[in-house]
Amino acid sequence: PGVNFSASNASTEVLCLLNMVTEEELRDDEEFEDIMEDVREECGKYGLVKSLEIPRPIQGVDVPGVGKIFVEFTSISECQKAQQALTGRKFANRVVVTSYYDPDRYHRREF
């Protein structure tokens, strides 16, 4: 509360999903695959998933974007549909927070 962070949020075709995964879960290969599958499956209901990026932690390296999930759709409208369907939903008992992401930064892998 206090600052209105919901302002100036232009939609793009890349959706950033926050508060869904922990570093510990990402380190586990099997769990990581399951998470990828869960996100791909659910996002596929709202549009065509062009690409999906889930940064994984690497021992001794400061990997940017760990804990975030990025989903690229083929259109902004599909991304909007997914955003509306996923925001506030529960994922592994955590509340999903969404944010649109700059496609250029996404493609440069600036997570």
């Binding site: 962070f5 919901s6 100036s8 969404t98 944010s99 992401y101």
Partner: peptide, 8 residues
């Protein structure tokens, strides 16, 4: 809100 600005 659970949808947040990309400017944060």
């Amino acid at each position: 809100p659970t949808n947040i600005s990309s400017n944060m």
